[in-house]
């Protein structure tokens, strides 16, 4: 027996961008990278063929976590770091819902690190958007777990001594089944990644490089500035040699210690280059180690593989148990075992 309203779903084919916009004033700082991400989500959602009422957006705490207020879907702005855990409850109870988690580098990598890795490990069918601006914005400018070592902030006047996380490597090590990276200003690429996440069954993790123009302005300029972008951007394409630079003149190969190196394609030939294979977890990890400034920055899907999701497996066990014991009632359980009658 289910109490859910079970009303007929609304028509998803007629949805438009404006259907996902709320009447709330967007309160991010003018010029914040979050605006672009919001716009791409609102543009992509109508294309997915999912009834609007089935979307749920769940966020933690931080600038990025204001996101649900601006999406006209079901949404919950929760507590710091816990969004993946709350979303796990929503999705496990109701596998029919399309559940998105919106988080930031502080929220997901620091206070919520534990929930982040365990959610990926379980492969709960959640779509996790992590806005990585490599700084704490809402608390006004402390270094984050993705800030580079030596970063001078309000809490690290002599420079941070912490070594940062590499979120893509972390996600892969946590057995994620979909791992990708994009950047806030690349509207087309971002839409493509969002669409692919939505179609993936299992946890989909997207790291989005996002500019905080107040506390960490220009952190990703090398990757977004028209002049330098071409040197540093590496678009990953499944089945294609890993090439980058003007005209794809450079590529990534392995040296005899199996470490990635940058090579000149004309000099070494395309045969020496790595060929991207999204299904290859080890290759994905290797590509995740390509870090600026020594290497170009890969964008796109590092890894994707099929594996039954947590919510599916839980539901399957319940269904199986019901099949084995079809007349289940609490009364039967109360009456089970040793009983005796007092007359």
């Amino acid at each position: 027996m289910s109490l859910y309203p079970n009303l007929p779903p609304t028509d998803a084919s007629a949805l438009q961008r404006k259907d996902f916009q709320t009447n709330q004033d967007v309160r991010w700082c003018p010029g914040c990278g979050d605006y672009s991400i919001l716009a791409q989500i609102q543009r992509t959602m109508p294309e997915l063929g999912i009834p609007k009422e089935n979307y749920v957006f769940i966020s933690g705490i931080g600038c990025s976590s204001r996101f649900p207020y601006y999406m006209d879907t079901f949404g919950m702005h929760t507590i710091h770091g816990r969004a993946p855990a709350i979303a796990t409850g929503v999705k496990t109870l109701r596998p029919d819902l399309q559940v998105w988690v919106v988080t930031g580098d502080g929220d997901a990598m620091s206070i919520g690190g534990n929930h982040f890795i365990h959610t990926l490990r379980r492969n709960v069918d959640l779509k996790i958007l992590m806005f990585n601006n490599r700084i704490y914005g809402l608390t006004k400018g402390q270094y984050s777990p993705t800030s580079e070592q030596g970063k001078k902030t309000k809490s690290t006047p002599m420079g941070s001594v912490d070594y940062p996380f590499n979120p893509i490597s972390l996600a892969l090590a946590a057995e994620a089944t979909f791992v990708a990276r994009s950047v806030d200003v690349d509207a087309k690429h971002l839409q493509e990644m969002i669409t692919r996440m939505a179609r993936h069954k299992g946890t989909a993790f997207l790291e989005i490089y996002q500019n905080c123009n107040i506390f960490n302005d220009g952190a990703f300029d090398y990757l977004t500035d028209r002049k330098t972008k071409v040197e540093h951007e590496l678009k990953l394409e499944h089945g294609k040699p890993v090439r980058f630079g003007p005209g794809g003149a450079k590529g990534i190969a392995l040296n005899n210690r199996l470490e990635p190196i940058v090579v000149d394609v004309a000099e070494h030939g395309e045969d020496r280059l790595l060929v991207h294979d999204e299904t290859n977890q080890s290759l994905a990890f290797l590509l995740s180690r390509l870090v600026h400034p020594d290497f170009p920055t890969p964008l796109g899907v590092f890894h994707m593989r099929e594996r039954p999701s947590y919510d599916q497996l839980v539901q399957a066990q319940v269904d199986e148990a019901k099949k084995r014991s079809p007349v289940g009632s609490v009364q039967a359980l109360l009456d089970a075992g040793e009983t005796w009658t007092v007359r």
Partner: peptide, 15 residues
């Protein structure tokens, strides 16, 4: 008002 109910889309939070 639970997710999946048409027309009841809304946001709640700790604020």
């Amino acid at each position: 008002a639970v997710p999946g109910t048409p027309g009841l889309e809304h946001r709640i939070g700790g604020l």
